[in-house]
Nucleic acid binder design. Structure first.
Length: 576
RNA sequence: CGGUGAGUAGCGCAGCCUGGUAGCGCACCUGCCUUGGGAGCAGGGGGUCGCUGGUUCGAUUCCAGUCUCACCGACCA
């Protein structure tokens, strides 16, 4: 590709509305341009990276026996009514009517459409297992699109759906996809973790998220430094504290704690460490349920774990008025003793091992010391409701400690069970001629988001450093002085030879000063840059600069193409 | 949707407080010059100042409304 005939509108300055690095750099490198909030044009360079990643995804999906197809963007409302999600999905689903007033939506995901296709076409156990996938544009009317391609409203996604005769067969399909995902992100040279995750609105029994590690990531994840355990903190189990201390023997006593609302203040005032206190939090559901959650003073509540434990559809912190009604106390002095209303009290499992602790007295400026469960109050149950922290013991192995990371969710695999197949009545006949419900799994990869995440993880002050596998071009040839016919001839020959070897090469033949070309090449993240200048040429030499390391290698003119080709091949080699 | 901030040339910004029809840098066009890390000189093109209404002789500037965009929360590939 000739740079002078291509279209790479780079900019020196960063558009003011781009906040994260990947967004800024994709704009500056001329990869994307915004059309509307969360909606982008993919310019030629950006499209190249996206296509390259798509193709890696395709290769691995095909290898894992998934079959490519393509479903429409526009979907009829009836299917969504059948699955129950027309009512449930909310405003994220962009709905509209056609000229006949029939209702439609832009597809945010394709469980309904694929299940409809499958229930019409898959009739026998002999037709399974089967897995269909597509690379397609989704639309989700996100409340707050942000960070460029990281969270767009319109975005490209690879989604796959597996169909199996029963749960254990579905597990095998799930494992196959899990392994394919591992290979995909490994091939892209990304530093990532596969973590246990909450299933959210897609539903189903279990799931894993694939997280690219980056400080700007929207999710917090933990991984064990010793075993393979890794999870989203939303989901991460806290270790079981087994140290059951002796039964509390000290007498319960009410003490004045004027204006001591925060745990640290109370503990400081009483000259105790915060882990000798128990804090109480009131949560409410939209339906009007309330719960009092008890945690060790220095621990944080995990709302999602509490919500899932209670089986609520939603959860939020109770308002001050609600809290007053439940406990009879202002915020800051809440506790399990002497509640005004009989509400559910759930304690974190860690609290089970505590004795003689401090709790709020449900009375302004009063706390109890030496409180003990059973003697002083009863609770409904114990549950794992606290958020794990870095340094916690691993919940799975004896020796490990949890490390904490920020991550960008680039892929998510779900075991759906029969959620959609049941709703849409997707059944098959088994070997005995008996009708059975199909078991499903679904598997997504954010295509644009992965490219953005790769940039987020790989950049420096000069611009993008994309891994070779998804860089828009693998290498470039920069002619330092276009007026020098010797330089131009040599550069062009290298360029043509590299193309002959099958390399994706950009020939920077522009009549620009060298500095401009170097800056642009760095910015757009060309992994290997071959510089042809008159000085080197006089000695029959050209140089190769490696973008990721900054290393400069001087090579003889005749050996450079093969050398660069070898470097590219080495970078693309992946474990089979 | 709640909270915060911003809309002036393709991009980054100034001007507005104290009304008199707009300016700087980059980018773009022409010429000269220059060619190993975003050069220099000269000339030039480009803006209904987000939109609507009000106040005023006169509004980018003051007032009201409205739209859009970004950031922080719930959602998610």
């Amino acid at each position: 590709m000739l740079y002078s005939r291509y279209f790479i509108p780079t900019t020196k300055e960063t558009p003011s509305d781009a906040e994260v690095v990947s967004h800024q750099l994709m704009l500056r490198a001329g990869m994307i341009r915004k059309l509307a909030s969360g909606i982008y044009n993919y310019l030629p360079l950006g499209l190249r990276s996206i296509r390259k990643f798509e193709n890696i995804v395709r290769e691995e999906m095909n290898k894992a026996d998934a079959i490519e197809m393509l479903m429409p963007n526009v979907q009829p409302a009836e299917l969504w009514e059948e699955s129950g999600r027309w009512a449930f999905y909310g405003k994220e689903l962009l709905r509209f009517k056609d000229r006949k007033e029939a209702e439609f939506c832009m597809g945010p995901t394709h469980e309904e459409v694929i299940t409809d296709m499958v229930r019409r076409e898959i009739k026998s156990y002999r037709q399974m297992p089967v897995n269909f996938y597509q690379v397609q544009t989704k639309f989700r009317d996100e409340i707050r699109p942000r960070f460029g391609l990281m969270r767009g409203r319109e975005f490209i996604m690879k989604d796959a759906y597996s169909f199996d005769v029963d749960s254990s067969a579905a597990d095998l399909s799930y494992d196959k996809m899990y392994n394919a995902y591992m290979r995909i992100f490994e091939r892209c040279g990304l530093n990532f973790r596969a973590v246990e995750a909450d299933t959210g609105s897609i539903g189903g029994s279990s799931s894993h998220e694939f997280m690219v590690l980056a400080d700007s990531g929207e999710d917090a994840i933990v991984s064990c430094d010793s075993c393979r355990y890794a999870a989203n903190v939303e989901k991460a189990e806290s270790p079981l504290f087994t140290d059951k201390s002796e039964a509390g023997s000290e007498p319960l006593q009410k003490v004045a704690t004027p204006d001591m609302k925060a745990i640290v203040d109370v503990a400081g005032f009483l000259n105790l460490s915060t882990d000798k206190t128990v804090k109480a939090l009131v949560y409410a559901s939209e339906k009007g349920d309330f719960v009092l959650a008890l945690l060790r003073g220095d621990h944080e509540l995990n709302e999602l774990k509490l919500k899932n434990y209670l089986g609520w559809e939603d959860i939020q912190m109770a308002t001050e008025e609600q809290i007053l009604a439940c406990t009879g106390s202002p915020v800051g002095f809440l506790g399990p003793i002497g509640l005004k209303q009989d509400i559910t009290v759930v304690a974190d499992r860690v609290v089970r091992g505590m004795s003689n602790f401090v709790v709020g007295a449900n009375e302004k400026d009063q706390h109890y010391i030496n409180a003990n469960i059973g003697r002083d109050f009863e609770l409904s149950s114990y549950a794992d409701i606290r958020s794990v922290e870095a340094g916690d013991a691993c919940p799975r192995c004896a020796s490990g400690k949890l490390e904490m990371w920020r991550g960008i969710e680039v892929g998510h695999v779900f075991k759906l069970g029969t959620k959609y197949s049941k709703a849409l009545n997707a059944t098959y006949l088994d070997a005995n001629g008996k009708e059975q419900i199909i078991f499903m799994g679904c598997y997504g990869i954010g295509i644009g988001r992965t490219v953005a995440a790769a940039i987020e993880q790989n950049h420096d002050e000069n611009g993008i450093i994309l891994p070779v596998a998804i860089a828009p071009f693998q290498c470039s040839v920069v002619a330092v002085n276009t007026k020098d016919s010797g330089v131009m001839a040599a550069a062009e020959e290298i360029y043509l030879n590299l193309e002959k070897l099958g390399c994706e090469v950009l020939f920077d033949d522009r009549d620009e000063r060298p500095g401009v070309k170097f800056k642009d090449n760095d910015l757009i993240g060309i992994p290997y840059r071959i510089v042809v200048g008159s000085k080197g040429l006089a000695e029959g030499k050209v140089e190769v600069k490696v973008r990721s390391t900054g290393e400069v290698i001087s090579l003889a003119l005749e050996e450079v193409t093969q050398a660069v080709k070898s470097m590219i091949d080495a970078a693309l080699a992946h474990k089979e």
